[in-house]
Write a protein that binds this DNA or RNA. Structure first.
Length: 560
RNA sequence: UGUCGUGUCGUCCAAUGGCAGGACAGCGCCCUUUGGAGGCGUUAAUCUAGGUUCGAAUCCUGGCACGACAGCCA
């Protein structure tokens, strides 16, 4: 692999820090998801960034669950996230942490701030607090509980922990500045009361730290040097710094980058959750979902996603990546590494009238022209074949090179055949095409050098396996799914044709034994992988990962 | 009309005061037993008005545009 030095503004900062010895030469990053949903391609960007930096600078990388809100989090999500991070090669070694394991320390730290007069228990309810916070242009008003004594605050906070108060009755707030132009600094909430079972702590706690209070402490405790997060936390950085400064503990630096947006899909957890709960897709791992689990099931390789993350780069400006870049990335990987095969998606019978009935023979097929070591395999040929309906036209459009009346085509790895006649049913549909073959033109023979305009794929009818193939397309019809008509939302832009199921596809014998997760190129059609959920041994179900570049589609488009 | 941040080819990312470059997409040609892959070529950009400078995408000032923030979510 061409291991070129990666460069971006974050690595530049780290290089500078290394020069000034800011962290004694250490580099330590982390990926801190909340276990409230499945990871998506945007998270992959963060995982690749954080773990990639640790790798490139010989540093360390932690996986840490930011599980500070019991009402949204579940073990199912923890499990899927661990699997996804590992699949992407995020090497956290033995450093799998949970914010909830730090709750006791956070509590003690809170006591410190109370003792310093920097935090107080507030009795304002949520509505009252919102009203007193002020607006973007007006300062807020100080809470009437702001001047409680340290003793009273200590007492009240201890009783909050004991469970003496109902949800929402009290909060612990930092005492900063109700007039700050940065609203995050207007006495932010540090703890709220939530009487709910936590997925790991069960009922040990009924007060839970908020993100801002918890996150810096988590980073500090783990010795993180560069706490990399997305742009929406830019305005939180002063608070991150304030807490650690007041606590007098080790302070990492927070650096923000632009989150990933991808065309023709949505990447917000809220929207992905709606797709799942409202059954627009079959689940978090539906192959059309932009989740890591979805991409994996679809047949995307981890290498292709990592490559994608490398080529999109990292910066601070909001951007939307064109999905063709992702498709390029998976094609590039699969082209080099996937086994070629012949599969007929929409079968049309071809009878070779001058080929002896009952006869069959083997043709030698190349497994992967991109890889000399991949060898060859035998594919059976006989009198009755299937070709794709797209490869025959009774009335060919301009520039159509494939089979049509009067035309010759090559059957890949086999013979050149010539059109003779067609058979139609009562409705006038073409049911069979009769051809003759030229016995001197088999691949490898002396006569094989003859040129014809097109080479098409085929399978022998008697030897073919019947399989199900699922053709996936983009989930949304609009580049930006949120660009919806008045009164409608992103769901109105769902692509009604994002899934097409083909039940009686005919594939070469080898594919009958394809194993779950394996990826193949169906020659001239696209890349397909064996669905790990719905396949049975001997009866694979194929998911289309991505099509091949279709030059013909463009030509046809032009002539319309 | 507050604070913070961001404006470079169609889309992303570079250029760290010194020839605006790469990738994807597009277009054209070559090659091809995949209309695949590959090769070659090509189109196309510094938000704006000033200023500093021998020289500005880069530094300064103003304007404009866009994004984030008024959860006891993260």
């Amino acid at each position: 692999m061409e291991e070129k030095e990666k460069s971006d503004f974050i690595r530049d900062i780290i290089n500078d820090d290394l020069k000034t010895n800011k962290y004694q030469g250490r580099v330590h990053t982390r990926f801190p998801p909340e276990p409230n949903g499945y990871l998506h391609i945007g998270h992959a960007k963060s995982i690749c960034l954080n773990s990639g930096i640790a790798r490139d600078f010989s540093g360390k990388f932690n996986l840490r669950f930011d599980d500070t809100n019991p009402s949204k989090e579940e073990q199912e999500y923890v499990d899927s996230i661990v699997q996804d991070v590992q699949w992407l090669g995020g090497n956290f070694e033995d450093r799998l942490f949970f914010a909830s394991d730090y709750f006791e320390t956070m509590y003690e730290y809170a006591l410190r701030l109370i003792a310093k007069g920097k935090a107080y228990v507030c009795d304002l309810n949520a509505d009252e607090m919102r009203l007193s916070r002020g607006t973007l242009t007006e300062p807020g008003k100080e809470s009437p509980y702001r001047s409680r004594s340290v003793e009273e605050n200590l007492d009240l906070f201890a009783r909050m922990r004991k469970g003496e108060f109902a949800n929402g009755a009290k909060t612990l707030r930092a005492k900063i500045d109700m007039a700050s132009p940065n609203i995050n600094l207007r006495d932010p909430v540090m703890y709220r009361i939530v009487h709910e079972e936590h997925h790991r702590q069960k009922n040990a706690w009924c007060i839970y730290p908020t993100y801002d209070w918890a996150h810096g402490i988590e980073d500090s405790l783990e010795g993180i040097t560069h706490s990399i997060c997305t742009l929406e936390f830019e305005n939180h950085r002063p608070l991150y710094d304030w807490y650690l400064e007041e606590l007098g503990v080790y302070r990492p630096q927070q650096i923000e980058f632009a989150r990933l947006n991808l065309s023709y899909t949505v990447l917000s957890k809220r929207k992905l959750l709606r797709l799942v709960t409202e059954n627009h897709v079959s689940g978090w791992d539906d192959p059309r979902m932009p989740t890591i689990a979805g991409f994996r099931r679809r047949g995307y390789t981890a290498a292709s996603i990592k490559n994608f993350c490398d080529i999109i780069g990292v910066a601070k400006r909001d951007s939307t990546i064109d999905v063709t870049l992702l498709e390029y990335s998976i094609r590039e990987d699969l082209n080099k590494h996937s086994q070629r095969s012949m599969a007929v998606l929409n079968p049309l019978k071809v009878v070779i009238t001058n080929y002896p009935e009952g006869n069959s023979e083997e043709c030698t097929a190349v497994n992967n022209p991109e890889d000399e070591n991949s060898g060859t395999r035998q594919v059976p040929f006989s009198r009755e074949l299937y070709i794709d309906q797209e490869d025959f036209r009774e009335v060919p459009p301009p520039k159509y090179y494939r089979l049509s009346p009067g035309m010759e085509v090559r059957l890949k790895y086999a013979y050149i055949i010539k059109f003779e006649s067609i058979v139609k049913d009562a409705q006038g549909n073409v049911t069979e095409v009769h051809c003759t073959y030229d016995p001197e033109t088999k691949s490898g023979m002396a006569g094989a050098g003859r040129k014809v305009k097109a080479t098409i794929h085929w399978v022998s009818a008697a030897h073919a396996k019947d399989v199900e193939v699922r053709l996936y397309d983009r989930l949304f019809v609009k580049e930006n799914p949120d660009d919806a008509e008045e009164g409608k939302d992103f769901l109105s832009n769902l692509n009604p044709n994002s899934l097409q199921v083909l039940k009686n596809c005919k594939v070469e014998p080898m594919l009958g034994n394809a194993k779950a997760g394996e990826g193949y190129q169906f020659e001239r059609t696209g890349y397909f992988s064996v669905d790990p959920k719905d396949s049975q041994p001997g009866t694979p179900v194929f998911n289309r990962v991505v099509t091949l570049k279709d030059t013909w589609a463009k030509i046809e488009q032009k002539h319309r």
